[in-house]
Write a protein that binds this DNA or RNA. Structure first.
Length: 1018
RNA sequence: GCGGAUGUGGUGAAAUUGGUAGACACGCUAGACUUAGGAUCUAGUGCCGAGAGGUGUGCGGGUUCGAGUCCCUCCAUCCGCACCA
């Protein structure tokens, strides 16, 4: 009976769905295992073969864990809010909800064909109100929380208010933007507005004016990681800086924990490094430099510039200060003498985009302000400069310049002839700054003679004792802007009363996205929700009502922004544990049981976005006691991208010229000739069929154009040339067919097999190629060129999983994607090898020796020693390999096993049954079918147990010892495994094979590694 | 510039703790069978060489009886960060 994958796979897809084979429940005594794929955004383009790579790997692992007896949670859903659907809506007027639904249906259809073991009853969609109700709830929880540094966790804002009422804010250790101090008495008489203004500085999500990446074309704000090279990641539109009132997330509060938490995670170093880098921790000190404005008698004791430095040990090397041009004190301190120049410098700096400022490193610019600061230790006066190499957004926006120890300061000082003071013992700083930390400090009062490490501590101590600063840790991580001026996102559960944000109680959630007529920003620049006519909050009836009812008494305007893409994806893994819960984001027992994700599979491109924000929200929910773990994703594997293999045809154009006018002559009439010839070519080329040259001839030419001669052309070339000549009526016209301007043209990969072009198909592909002529190989084929590129429609190299499932079956596709190579690695997609995998499954099928009715004719007796050895070798290899996520080598070993069993003509039932279980995570359909045919119809192979490895079957009586001389393997010698190293040595040395290499000499040394190798040193 | 990853046949790759480099496939070559299918089977296939043999894991060096694997230097490709004080 033939292996008919199409009907088998269809049958089992239906059977699994009907029987709820992959449904899991919390209620279980089994140990849990949580396998999750990164949330896909359902794009209109559907899936190509690159997408399922990670899904297949995680599915194989999930199935493997099930066979091992774990209760495996393996869900799938959609990150279904997002810009593309909105862009499409703007263009077509089609509601994003509709396109999103269609795209999801398409995704689902494609996913279903691959045979994944998802529990679809747990599907979630971020854009469904039942889901985003809880996204809104988390937002409110963040709004109602503050970060207590002394407890090092988030706490309820009501605790904070109680503290304010009792003791004011002076002694509260919080992560806050609050600068002024108030007493309990003062707090208690603050107005409601004043109180809220203060609380905004403490809340974990808060309103603030912030500089944002404004994208006018999209009418929205983008996060830093959504901006690539100054244009929007999606769409490539220009982005500018704009000050806007926005919701922000106080992620900075978690900077330290996000950093230290990385140690406990089983992620790649590369991702951890990216996050470490992004958080950007630096230890040092902030130091106050008192100002001296040069005006006699003025009290300057209260005015100072705060700088941040990581090298307080070099403070005696300070010869000037530099402020960022945007620093608020610049205008205050600049003397009248330099006012114009400073204003001009600031103007020029403001014109430069962030990108220009970054790329222009070589051009050193700066402006002296005329103001001077007092060195807090030496009392010396130092000039204060402004320069755009200092960033307003980092540290304090001011640096103490130590030109002897910092290269940028050195460059600046050298450029402007500022003195450089050397404070390093025996180090030359005439050519460059000395930036290493290994020098002894010199000429630095109490720091002289100390090493940097000691001196840093000493300096901080002195700074703190003197009251001129303190040790400080700085983070590069910024608070995250959380507002988007978009339609297709979660609405905020916020309305405004007297301009103050008010939250809506959880029992009235979700606040459902309103209908709008247009998805664009309003004419007066409001976000798209400004177009909604029913978008006001009625506090009396607790519902959304018409805008016309707004009276600012009981009916108030709702927030017009929506949440960013990362809101819904920051907690979705929690929802899968209890997706239908209407009373909580998930029931406590569900979260407590499933906990965090054990294996997370997805791309590395979310390193600073999703993976950081999800960690932040998880830590927050942990702090507030909602979940029992601090990290969302314990182990992560980043699958590599699958690249496309594009195929090319090469078009050449004939060159026509008048015979009586040599095209290469330098005649006086050359201009006229050229024009005549150009006209001739334009006219005649249009009449000619398109001509394509096979790649192998072209390759010869490209490899060595100089020695390429007409002899390399074959008879085809002459035929075409003749054909063209016949087409030209004019007798005075000559023609050449040169290949040096051959144009590569992408050709659809479905027309190419093994680099051979389907000529008839190609002619039908495009009407302009209908009469194409080809310069072919001698065997009459056309060989295409190829290149590895990203998969894209325009390159005609997209391979969809659907086509392959149709042609080879889902099991073959699954095995082949795994067989390609290590999952983490980027690799080109090439269908060439898929036949090999398809053959493997057919060979597996044949092992079962099915008769015409599909009943296997198997041997029910005891398996042979060889059978057992082949099987147990595979059990060991496959379980070892799966434990280290080496999916590709498993497939190879299945092949080896099937090859061996075929050779042994094994039809043993026990052996084949266990083999099926081993293979089932990779090829579930064929495994189920054969499992059933073997008489296990009552159960599914998914309920089987992973076979147990028995070492005994692998024990060898004889070992083929490789015998090396000086490390080079010369011959092999079969010897009894029981022999001692000494005995092995003797037998080998006395063998005739060895004599050949010994040449009568006595070896210097003989090394015998029992069971492994013999090495003879001559 | 800094940090990370990767580099092995014509191709995808394997070699888990230093122990037979190239398993398993693709492709290619030759052959068998055939009602000519993109089927199946057999043999061969890193490179150089007729052969004996030599040589070989990006380059160069080192440690070791033995190195794809460990150490040092350099090169290339990809990714991330980048005036970060």
């Amino acid at each position: 009976m033939e292996y008919n994958f199409n009907s088998i796979e269809q049958k089992w897809r239906k059977r699994w769905a009907d029987n709820n084979t992959y449904k899991v429940s919390t209620d279980s005594n089994k140990e849990k295992f949580y396998v999750l794929d990164m949330f896909p955004y359902p794009s209109g383009a559907g899936l190509h073969v690159g997408h399922p790579l990670g899904y297949i790997a995680s599915d194989v692992y999930a199935r493997y864990k099930r066979l091992q007896g774990f209760n495996v949670l393996h869900p799938m859903g959609y990150d279904s809010f997002g810009l593309p659907a909105e862009q499409y809506a703007i263009q077509t007027g089609q509601h994003p909800e509709l396109t999103t639904k269609e795209n999801i249906a398409r995704y689902r259809d494609q996913l279903d064909k691959i045979g994944f073991s998802y529990d679809w009853s747990r599907e979630v969609r971020t854009s469904s109100p039942e889901y985003y109700k809880w996204t809104q709830w988390i937002f409110i929880e963040l709004f109602n929380s503050w970060y207590d540094k002394s407890a090092d966790k988030a706490r309820s804002i009501t605790d904070l208010i109680a503290l304010f009422e009792k003791e004011g804010n002076a002694s509260i250790q919080a992560v806050t933007d609050q600068e002024t101090v108030f007493t309990a008495a003062e707090w208690n008489v603050f107005s409601k507005e004043e109180k809220e203004a203060v609380l905004q500085n403490y809340r974990l999500t808060y309103l603030a004016d912030s500089w944002v990446n404004w994208c006018p074309a999209l009418g929205t704000v983008l996060a830093n990681d959504e901006v690539v090279n100054g244009v929007s990641e999606r769409g490539g539109h220009p982005v500018e800086q704009k000050l806007m009132r926005q919701w922000s997330m106080r992620i900075k509060a978690y900077a330290e924990r996000l950093l230290t938490g990385l140690d406990s995670l089983d992620w790649t170093d590369s991702i951890k490094d990216i996050q470490t880098n992004w958080i950007g921790k630096s230890k040092g000190a902030s130091v106050f430099f008192p100002l001296w404005r040069g005006i006699e008698g003025e009290d300057t004791s209260k005015t100072h510039i705060e700088v941040f430095t990581t090298r307080p040990d070099t403070i005696f090397g300070v010869t000037f200060l530099v402020l960022a041009p945007e620093h608020p004190l610049v205008d205050v301190i600049t003397t009248t003498e330099y006012a114009d120049k400073v204003a001009e410098y600031k103007r020029v700096a403001s014109l430069k985009s962030e990108r220009d400022r970054q790329s222009d490193v070589k051009n050193i610019t700066g402006q002296i302000t005329g103001a001077k600061a007092i060195h807090p230790f030496t009392g010396a006066e130092v000039d204060i400069w402004i320069a755009d190499y200092v960033l307003a957004s980092y540290g304090t926006g001011a640096v103490m310049a130590v030109p002897c120890g910092d290269q940028r300061d050195w460059d600046f000082a050298t450029h402007f002839n500022i003195p450089i003071k050397n404070i390093f013992q025996d180090k030359d700083i005439s050519k460059a700054a000395y930036t290493e930390k290994d020098a002894l400090i010199a000429a630095s009062d109490f720091l002289t003679g100390l090493e940097a490490k000691v001196a840093i501590e000493k300096a901080i101590e002195a700074i703190e004792n003197k009251g001129i600063g303190k040790g400080k840790t700085n983070y590069r991580l910024r608070d995250a802007v959380f507002s988007r001026q978009r339609y297709w996102g979660e609405p905020f559960p916020i309305y405004y009363k007297n301009g103050l944000p008010q939250t809506i109680a959880v029992e009235h959630l979700p606040i459902v996205l309103p209908e709008v007529e247009k998805y664009l920003p309003t004419e007066d620049g409001q976000p798209p929700l400004g177009n909604a006519t029913v978008w006001a909050w009625d506090t009396a009836n607790n519902k959304v009502v018409e805008n016309s009812k707004i009276d600012h008494q009981t009916v108030f305007p709702l927030e017009l922004n929506t949440m960013p893409g990362w809101a819904g994806s920051s907690w979705y893994f929690l929802r899968y544990t209890d997706p239908l819960n209407t009373n909580a984001f998930a029931a406590k027992d569900a979260v407590d049981y499933w906990k965090n994700v054990d294996l997370y599979m997805g791309g590395a491109e979310h390193a600073t976005g999703h993976l950081l924000y999800a960690r932040f929200w998880t830590k927050f929910l942990y702090d507030r006691g909602y979940i029992p773990f601090e990290e969302p994703f314990q182990k992560m594997i980043n699958q590599g991208m699958i690249l496309g293999r594009s195929s090319f045809v090469y078009r050449i154009k004939p060159l026509f010229y008048y015979t009586n006018e040599d095209p290469y002559s330098l005649d006086k009439k050359i201009d006229i000739d050229i024009k005549k010839n150009v006209d001739l070519n334009m006219e005649l080329t249009r009449q000619m069929p398109p001509i394509f040259i096979t790649y192998s001839i072209l390759k010869k030419y490209l490899n060595d154009p100089y020695s390429f001669s007409d002899n390399n052309f074959n008879i085809e070339h002459k035929r075409i040339l003749k054909l063209i000549k016949e087409n030209v009526q004019n007798q005075n016209v000559s023609v050449e067919l040169s290949i040096n301007d051959a144009t590569p043209i992408h050709v659809d990969i479905s027309l190419v097999d093994n680099d051979k072009l389907d000529l008839e198909g190609f002619k039908k592909w495009r009407s302009e190629y209908a009469n194409a002529e080809f310069i072919l190989e001698n065997d009459g084929t056309y060989i295409c060129g190829h290149e590895v590129e990203k998969m894209s429609k325009s390159k005609y190299n997209v391979q969809t999983p659907d086509e392959l499932v149709e042609k080879y079956g889902a099991d073959t596709l699954r095995c082949y994607e795994m067989f390609l190579g290590p999952v983490e690695q980027a690799k080109p997609w090439d269908t060439k090898g898929i036949n090999g995998v398809s053959n493997f499954l057919r060979k597996l099928w044949r092992l079962f020796n099915l008769d015409e009715n599909g009943s296997p004719r198997l041997d029910e007796g005891e398996p042979s020693k060889d059978n057992l050895k082949s099987l147990h070798k595979t059990i060991k290899k496959v379980s070892d390999d799966l434990e280290r996520f080496s999916f590709n080598t498993c497939v190879s070993n299945f092949m080896i096993c099937v090859n061996e069993l075929s050779e042994q003509k094994c039809t043993n039932k026990q052996i084949l049954e266990q083999l099926l279980v081993l293979v089932s995570p990779y090829a579930p359909h064929i495994a189920e079918e054969l499992w059933e045919k073997m008489g296990n119809g009552a159960t599914s192979v998914t309920q089987a147990s992973f076979p147990t490895f028995n070492e005994a079957y692998l024990v060898e009586d004889n070992i083929e010892y490789p015998v090396s001389f000086n490390g080079k393997m010369r011959f092999k010698m079969p010897l009894a495994a029981a022999l001692s190293p000494k005995e092995v040595e003797e037998i080998v040395l006395n063998s005739p094979e060895a004599a050949k290499y010994l040449e009568g000499k006595t070896p210097k040394k003989v090394i015998v590694v029992p069971g492994k190798i013999v090495n003879i040193v001559m």
